[in-house]
Design a protein around this nucleic acid. Structure first.
Ligand SMILES: NC(=O)c1ccc[n+]([C@@H]2O[C@H](COP(=O)([O-])OP(=O)(O)OC[C@H]3O[C@@H](n4cnc5c(N)ncnc54)[C@H](O)[C@@H]3O)[C@@H](O)[C@H]2O)c1
Ligand SMILES: NC(=O)c1ccc[n+]([C@@H]2O[C@H](COP(=O)([O-])OP(=O)(O)OC[C@H]3O[C@@H](n4cnc5c(N)ncnc54)[C@H](O)[C@@H]3O)[C@@H](O)[C@H]2O)c1
Lengths: 207, 207
DNA sequence: AAAATATTGTTAATTAAATCACAGATTCAA
DNA sequence: TTGAATCTGTGATTTAATTAACAATATTTT
C-alpha cells in the first residue's frame, strides 16, 4: 500500500519537528501539540499516524523516539538513496551546499555540468562530472534521484538523458514542465508558481 | 470569489506555457494541448478556464493572447507587488539574481541581512538593507511580500519582525514551519519535504 | 447541404481528503 | 473507587477536487 501524497509530505514535516523536540529533551508529544506546530488539526495528525500503523501510549501522547523511527521505516530506504544535482549554477550550488550531510538517508554524491570550468571542481566534498559521463556515473554510483537545476532551455534535453540513464526520481527546479515516463516519479518544484500564488492571495484574501 | 489554491497554481503554470507558445508564433491552443504540456487532463484545463470565466472561439481553441491577459487579470495586481528577500546567503542570492526582471508584476526591490559585510551591497541592482530598518523600508517602499531565506534558527524571530512590519504574504524557504496571523498568507516552500517525497515514491512506486 | 468530426462548456457522478463525533482507555482528584 | 477530565483511534459524514458524460456548436468532408 502506498500512502497519499499529502500524507507523505506531512510525515516528512512531522519528523523534522519531532527531531527538534527530541533535541529539546522532550520524550512525548500529543497530537494537538504536533498539529499546532504545523498548520494542521489534531485529527489529521492522528489520521496520518494511523495510516502508518503506529499507536501511542494511551494518554501520554506519542513516544517521540518511536514515532521518528516508524516514520523513518516508512519514508527512508534502508540503505539510503544516492542523489545527483544536474547544473551547478547559483541554485545548484546553494542546494548542494545545503543538503550535503543533512539527511543521512539521502546523499548527494555527484554533480554534473557542461561548463568545462566547473568540471572536476569539488563543492562541499562533492565532485562535478561532465554531463557526458552521466549514464556511466549514475550506473556506477547507483544514483537514483536527480535534482535538476540547469537553464530552462536545456531542461527537456537533459531530462531525456536522465531518463536514458535510468534515473528513478526527479525533482525539477526549472520553470518548464517536464515529460518523463510514468515509472519515474517527478516533482515539479516551482518557485514562480508559489510566488505568484502568494501574490494572488495577498491581492484577494480568503476571508 | 477566491479560486481554489490548486487552480491558482495551475493558472500560473498555464500562463508560462502560453507565453512560450506565443513566442513560438502560435495564436491558439486546444485544451488537450495545454493539458499535455502539464501533467493534466483536458477536462481539468477547461474547468480551470471556466473558473476564470473565459470562453474560447468554439472549435478554434483558446486565443493565446486573450487567455494570457485574462489569467493576468486574475493573478496579477494592477500596479504590481513589491517583494523583499530576507537573508541574502547562498539561496537568497540565487533567488534574487534569478527573479529580478523576470515577472513584471512582482518586483524584488530590497533585500535584508544582519551580516554587516553584506549590508549596502547591491545584487542584480537590488540593495541590501540592515534588518533593523525592515519596518521603515517595508513601509516606505510598500513591500507586501517577503521571501524568507534566513538560517532556520532565526526564522521564527525574523518572522515576528515581518509580521510587525505588516507584510501581507510570506514565502518560507526555511525548514521550520512558521506561525503568522491568519490574515497573512503563508506558503511553506519546503525542499526537504519535496525531496523526501520523491525518495518515498522511488522506494514505493505507485503502480 | 447532409453527415462526420472535433472541441468546448457544464451537469452529474465519482473519488479523495478532511472533519465530525464519539467510544474506549487512562489518569487524576477527591 | 467513583467521577470528571483528557486524549487516542476510527467509523460515519461532509466537503472539496477530479473525472465522466454528453449536449451544443463550429468545421470539414463528401
Ligand atoms: N536561481 C533560482 O532561484 C531559480 C528560481 C526558479 C527557477 N530556477 C531555475 O533553476 C535553473 C537554474 O537556475 P540558476 O539560477 O542556478 O542558473 P545558472 O545559470 O546560475 O546555472 C545553470 C547551470 O547549469 C549549467 N548547464 C547549462 N547547460 C547544461 C546542461 N545541458 N547540462 C548540465 N548543466 C548545464 C550551467 O553551466 C550552469 O552552471 C533554471 O532553469 C532556472 O529557471 C532558478
Ligand atoms: N540553500 C538551500 O538550497 C536550502 C535548501 C532548503 C532550505 N534552505 C533554508 O534556507 C535558509 C537559507 O539557506 P542558505 O543556504 O542560503 O544559508 P546561508 O547561511 O548561506 O544564508 C543565510 C543568510 O541569512 C543571513 N542572516 C542570518 N541571520 C539573519 C537575520 N536574523 N536576519 C536577516 N538575515 C540573517 C546570514 O547573514 C546569511 O547571509 C536556511 O534556513 C535553510 O534551512 C536552504
Amino acid at each position: 500500500m502506498t500512502l497519499p501524497e499529502r500524507t507523505v509530505e506531512r510525515l516528512s514535516e512531522y519528523r523534522r519537528s519531532l527531531l527538534q523536540c527530541l533535541e529539546e529533551g522532550k520524550t512525548h508529544i500529543f497530537s494537538h501539540e504536533l498539529a499546532d506546530l504545523h498548520h494542521n488539526t489534531a485529527v489529521q495528525v492522528r489520521r496520518d499516524i494511523m495510516f502508518i500503523g503506529y499507536t501511542s501510549m494511551q494518554r501520554k501522547g506519542y513516544d517521540l523516539r518511536e514515532l521518528v523511527d516508524v516514520i523513518g521505516d516508512i519514508l527512508d530506504s534502508e540503505r539510503g538513496l544516492n542523489v545527483a544535482v544536474i547544473g551547478i549554477g547559483n541554485l545548484g550550488k546553494a542546494v548542494t551546499t545545503y543538503f550535503v550531510g543533512k539527511r543521512s538517508k539521502l546523499n548527494i554524491i555527484a554533480t554534473f555540468d557542461v561548463d568545462t570550468t566547473k568540471i572536476d571542481r569539488v563543492i562541499s566534498g562533492v565532485k562535478c562530472y561532465p554531463l557526458s559521463r552521466l549514464k556511466e556515473v549514475v550506473e556506477a554510483q547507483q544514483i537514483s534521484i536527480a535534482i535538476l537545476t540547469v537553464p530552462a532551455d536545456s531542461a527537456a534535453e537533459v531530462t531525456a538523458q536522465l531518463v536514458e540513464a535510468d534515473i528513478k526520481g526527479l525533482m525539477n527546479f526549472t520553470t518548464v514542465p517536464l515529460n518523463v515516463p510514468p515509472e519515474i516519479y517527478l516533482d515539479e518544484f516551482d518557485m514562480i508558481t508559489s510566488l505568484e500564488k502568494v501574490a494572488y492571495f495577498v491581492k484577494s484574501p480568503q476571508n
